[in-house]
């Protein structure tokens, strides 16, 4: 049985409020900007992926992935 690592996205002082919508969105954008700057395999981008997966509901991520494929994603990529 693989050991489970108890670790999640850290508290972010840009988003100190109850509303964490932007937190999730920002982490998602950060990951994709990181990937487009450093390439698909960049190890330092992986942490952003972990963060947004922890913070974003799966449904949102699916929708955003779809939008990125169609070129209709609203964020600054």
């Amino acid at each position: 049985m693989a050991e489970i690592e108890i670790k999640t996205a850290p508290a972010d002082f840009r988003f100190p409020t109850t509303n964490q919508t932007r937190h999730c969105f920002t982490r998602y954008v950060e990951f994709h900007r990181c990937v487009s700057a450093k390439g698909d395999e960049a190890a330092e981008c992986e942490k952003f992926a972990k963060y947004y997966r922890s913070l974003c509901p799966a449904e949102w991520v699916d929708r955003w992935n779809e939008q990125r494929e169609n070129g209709t994603f609203a964020g600054p990529l």
């Binding site: 999640t8 850290p10 508290a11 972010d12 002082f13 100190p16 409020t17 913070l55 509901p57």
Partner: peptide, 15 residues
């Protein structure tokens, strides 16, 4: 209650 004071250990999403 709403202070971001410590890094949480686990994130759980309740949808």
């Amino acid at each position: 209650m709403d202070g971001v004071l410590v890094d949480p250990a686990i994130t759980i999403k309740a949808i």
